[in-house]
Computed example of a mutant assay.
Amino acid sequence: MSVVIPALNAAGTLPAQLEALARQDVDVPWEVVVIDNGSTDGTLDVCRSFEGRVPGLRAISCARPGTSAARNAGAASSSSELLLFCDADDEVAPGWVSAMVAALRTSDAVGGAIENDKLTTVRTPYMPRHPDHLPVVAGFLPRAITANLGVRREVFDDVGGFAADYDYGGPDTEFCWRLQLAGHRLTYAPDAVVHYRHRHTLRSVAVKAFRTGISRGRLYRDYGPRGMPRPRLAGVAARWAGLLLSAPAAAVSPARRWRWVEQAAGAAGRVRGSWRFRVLYL
């Protein structure tokens, strides 16, 4: 079994993740593969400092930028029957590896639970929270996020791994959709918990929402013909009208400002994605 972690300039957060993995109680052979995606800080030094403490820890390099390319490189470097994916800036909870392995005994792929609070060092008026289930995205199919994802090797190979040309906001959704459309089963593993590091600045929330909005255009281009629905124009009009009407309140209320900025950035991203991918997905 292999734990695959893409890393780019992660020297500040990777130690906590590797420490959490070092404390896992696992009764099967396993390894941890860190994929350096072009770091210029001490990410590789961090990996070397954990050698001997984390089972089978090794670091490899991936010249192609992007987390999807890095995850594919990590999977390709391993011959394990089970692939577990997590991120360099989060922290797996005790028992995570064992819970993922147990869940994969009866499923083709699993998404674990996301804990929202432990790594939240700055409290904000509004913070997006992951639900305690696998959410259905864009009214189409559920997905797990790559911060807590497990998949059987034969399934990963069958669907061709992650689509390396997908930008931020779409790779995990696209992978999970393609996996399910190929006839494989994706389930929720509530006992496999990852502590998630949320963004806590208004700018970072806006950037995430904007880039996610752009990715919806690409998803609709590729999966509209396979059943992904387009938002109804009445709903689109209501969303834009709501943004205009709520702008004055957002100017004076911090909590409403965070919500407004996220919604406005997402709407702008869908406009940009529609133009970029030559679709109408607003």
Rank of each mutant, 00 (worst) to 15 (best):
G273P: 02
A268Q: 03
P190Y: 06
G150I: 04
S61P: 00
I114R: 10
R216Q: 14
A189I: 05
L134H: 08
P142M: 09
I145Y: 13
T67A: 15
G183P: 03
T13Q: 11
R230K: 15
P131T: 08
D36G: 05
M1Y: 06
G95Y: 06
A63D: 14
R203T: 14
N72Y: 04
C47G: 08
N9M: 10
S107A: 15
R123P: 00
L233H: 12
G42N: 14
G111W: 00
L44M: 13
L44C: 10
I114G: 01
L282Y: 04
D89W: 12
V205D: 14
P225L: 10
M1I: 12
N9E: 14
A7R: 07
D172R: 07
L245D: 05
W260C: 02
L82Y: 13
T201W: 03
S79Y: 01
S253V: 01
H184F: 15
D222Y: 04
G273S: 01
S253L: 03
A63R: 12
G38V: 01
L104S: 07
Y126F: 15
G139A: 10
D222R: 15
L186A: 11
D165G: 07
P135T: 11
L84H: 08
F50T: 06
V193K: 13
R143K: 15
N72S: 10
Y281P: 04
D41L: 09
V32R: 03
S61I: 00
S78M: 11
V271Y: 04
D165S: 14
R276Y: 01
R272N: 04
A264F: 12
P55F: 03
G269A: 03
S98E: 14
N72H: 08
L179S: 03
R218F: 01
R23D: 10
Y168L: 12
V193D: 14
F162P: 09
P231S: 07
P15G: 06
L84S: 11
V271M: 08
V236L: 14
A264E: 03
S49G: 07
Y196K: 02
Y281N: 07
P190A: 10
L104R: 02
D27K: 03
S274F: 02
D36A: 02
D158A: 15
L243N: 10
A88D: 15
H200Q: 13
A247C: 07
